[in-house]
Design a protein around this nucleic acid. Structure first.
Length: 360
DNA sequence: TGCCAGGCCCTCTTTAGGGCCTT
């Protein structure tokens, strides 16, 4: 299984062949996904130009998406996505197929940073700082301060900010801890608003041996295959997924456990390796400091157990799926985040105050 | 032969040591 792009309960896409194929595989009983891979040209740059998705109200959903290798002058950061159709599954009577053609603008290159015009001045914060700190700020304004300022300005400008925020939990599985030598082998996202197309998951071909199968259960044979996309091939799809979830004029916030020192630096390194950059308007939040704050507020000694699995046990959240698989951990993180923000009485605006950018 | 991830946080403290977190 290599790709999932799912709805309320998640769907599963599993290309068994890399090119010229349509695959149907069962997922969670009645759910299935149809994936079609098409080779348009010999160039090995994957573009996702067509995406058939899906959708089914009620109990079942299907996603079909078509990927093809781009040709000509297309680039990784500029491609198009079309939602072309959906499959309706009828467990007792087979399929009924209904195709809908709908274009979605998914151009990813040259995206304007809507906050950039507000980064040069910051009077209200300057008034609160000492002269020494002010001088430091003027000389060494950090990206973190800027990103926080973006959010503060956004809150000030728009009282409906919370409606404009897209919070996406994510997780990666890798071949190890080293950013330089290790590689991502699985990645998953979940838009916490839920709804159709709210989850995305894919295995990633690392192009190297997987030494830590005992951790996540992802074996060498599962990912080092021609039908599993490499990170370079997957990045355009990730960008499209995130963009498809972003509300125009809104803020995308990606949340992970230990994001600041593991997931984000790792992701940043993978993007860099593929000559790509994480979009500057993506904000990140690390739930690890939130967990430490909760434990501290409860009187627990810090450091106490604040791993994702320890938090699952602390909040008495049942284990669903396999721990250390990206999508399972993402689902768990979404539930843990609810508890953490509840315990800390932290509204979205407060949560955003702890956000940072990948460039930090 | 030595290194082998890196950052945060706390303590038995202060500039070091060690545990925790991510795979």
């Amino acid at each position: 299984m290599t790709c999932r792009w799912g709805g309320d309960r998640g769907c599963n896409a599993s290309p068994a062949l890399w090119r010229n194929m349509v695959v149907l595989l069962p997922f969670r009983g009645n759910e299935e996904v149809v994936v079609e891979w098409r080779e348009v040209a010999s160039r090995q740059t994957l573009l996702m130009s067509e995406c058939f998705c899906i959708s089914i109200t009620g109990m079942l959903s299907y996603f079909t998406y078509s990927l093809h290798f781009g040709s000509g002058r297309d680039s990784v950061g500029n491609s198009s996505l079309k939602v072309l159709g959906s499959h309706k599954y009828e467990p007792e009577g087979g399929y009924s197929r209904k195709w809908i053609s709908r274009s979605v603008n998914t151009k990813t290159g040259g995206k304007k940073d809507t906050f950039s015009s507000k980064t040069s001045i910051r009077p209200e914060i300057s008034e609160e700082t000492s002269s020494i700190k002010l001088n430091k700020y003027e000389l060494e304004t950090t990206e973190l301060e800027r990103s926080q300022y973006y959010v503060q300005q956004k809150i000030a400008d728009n009282k409906d900010l919370e409606r404009l925020v897209t919070i996406i939990a994510f997780d990666i599985e890798t071949t190890g801890f080293g950013r330089e030598n290790d590689r991502v082998i699985e990645i998953a996202f979940q838009d916490l608003r839920g709804g159709k197309n709210s989850t995305f998951q894919s295995l990633v071909n690392p192009g190297r041996y997987v030494p830590n199968t005992h951790i996540h259960g992802i074996s060498n044979n599962m990912v080092n295959r021609s039908d599993v996309p490499s990170m370079e091939q997957l990045i355009p799809i990730l960008l499209k997924y995130i963009q498809s979830r972003q509300i125009p004029g809104g803020v995308v916030v990606l949340i992970a456990h230990n994001a600041r020192t593991f997931d984000v630096p790792f992701l940043k390194r993978e993007f860099s390796r593929c000559s790509c950059k994480i979009p500057p308007d993506w904000l990140f939040i690390d739930t690890l400091p939130l967990a430490r704050a909760v434990m501290k507020s409860k009187g627990s000694k810090v450091p106490s157990k604040v791993s994702l699995q320890a938090l699952r046990e602390y909040y008495d959240i049942p284990l669903v799926g396999s721990a250390h698989r990206a999508l399972s951990d993402v689902h768990l993180l979404a539930l843990v985040l609810q508890r953490l923000t509840h315990d800390l009485k932290l509204p979205i605006s407060g949560l955003l105050q702890s956000s940072f950018k990948a460039s930090n």
